[in-house]
Design a protein around this nucleic acid. Structure first.
Lengths: 216, 216
DNA sequence: TCCAGATGTATCGAGTTGATACATCGACAA
DNA sequence: TTGTCGATGTATCAACTCGATACATCTGGA
């Protein structure tokens, strides 16, 4: 149960917390929410549902949808959180460790910020920022080291990649600013967390560190 | 040999065309060139090398590196393109079909634009642009359709995703402009393909179409 | 001299993908 | 009525990929 399931699991629990659903719809909603970032196939969805049922975090109810003819019964399994599942979800939503600011997990966690408390939101955003800043440093170094030996297109590709990460950091800056503002001056849930126009020098933000794993 | 190997294969051939290399270095170079976009593990590299050898596109030479002690011999297998391999590579580099402008393949193709002729470069860039434009349309639609039912964070995530794709399109616009300019007015290989400051309305650019596969 | 860390080849289990099978439902036309 | 088409729905499989790791040698520095 390694790998992507660390993403899938919270996503499923999070969606089911909003309302019970069956597999097909779960898939649609997930691809809607995370669509631009990642896809979800049945091959991972159904095994994951199965395993969640086994661990008693969700339970499936065979529900028969009323068709227009009387005799036919169309099986669809509607899943919902159990008490244990709700508790587990709360635990997951409260976590803000290094794992939460990795590429694979961050998006999902962010998508469910609505169910996450302000403290945790801020910690995750700041952790993510640190993570990206580290990557930036790595990229910049290998960029400087090899700029001579590269042809123009490889160079352009790297420049473009660098820019994307830089932009991502600025996006986070805006969100962090907004979270801080929310907490200090406004009643919760007001302003939209749009990236601010002033990038705001927040280089002091540097919680826990993860070490960059071989990327050059 | 489906999936990522469609990426790996051309990448390996492209690198080996520049100079013979052994596995470890191939991996380093690949992660250097494509580092910000994707990673490469041994678990995929070595099987791919093996399969390339079997198809006679590359051949590995057991080379013993002179160590400072006399007795020890350190095995390292240096791979290089065969004549068949070179031919195949040329064929791959000349292709510009729908597959080349998908997410998984585009970066690699772009990284080897230096070995690709101007016509093909332009076709790939334009195809990629069309591809992204289609995706933009899909995202915008599901965005408009569901904007009411979403909480602010999910919305922000989608807005951010949309923006990234939009930016990608503008990047391509700059590159396309540059390619056209190169071909028309400048001797080949001069100007840097930096994204132009004027996005340049090139909406007429619309070669062949691929249909979007379920994303809502 | 010895050790930690880089270099180097190689494999494995666990998990994921994309395709596909199978079946029902709703709508629309002949 | 019947036929067919595309969406809805659950489920599985072979092929493939990842991350970790094993094993060994080389290099630089304390």
């Amino acid at each position: 149960m390694r790998g992507r399931s660390d993403v899938l699991e919270p996503a499923i629990l999070g969606l089911l917390h909003e309302s019970p659903m069956h597999g097909y719809e779960l898939r649609k909603r997930l691809n809607l929410v995370l669509g631009s970032f990642r896809a979800l196939s049945y091959g991972s969805l159904y095994p994951c549902l199965k395993s969640l049922v086994e661990r008693r975090w969700i339970e499936g109810t065979e529900s028969v949808v009323a068709p227009h003819t009387v005799a036919s019964k169309r099986a669809r399994i509607v899943y919902q959180l159990t008490a244990d599942g709700k508790e587990h979800l709360q635990q997951v939503l409260a976590s803000s460790g290094p794992a939460t600011w990795e590429d694979e997990n961050f998006d999902v966690r962010f998508a469910f910020f609505g169910q996450t408390d302000a403290e945790t939101r801020l910690r995750i955003l700041e952790g993510r920022r640190t993570r990206l800043t580290e990557r930036l440093e790595t990229i910049r170094q290998s960029f400087a080291r090899t700029r001579e030996r590269m042809d123009e297109y490889t160079l352009e590709l790297q420049r473009h990649g660098l820019e994307q990460v830089e932009r991502e950091v600025r996006w986070l800056d805006g969100l962090i600013d907004n979270e801080r503002g929310l907490r200090r001056t406004r009643p919760a849930g007001t302003g939209r967390p749009t990236a601010a126009d002033t990038p705001a020098e927040t280089d002091d933000v540097a919680p826990a560190r993860t070490t960059e794993k071989e990327r050059g």
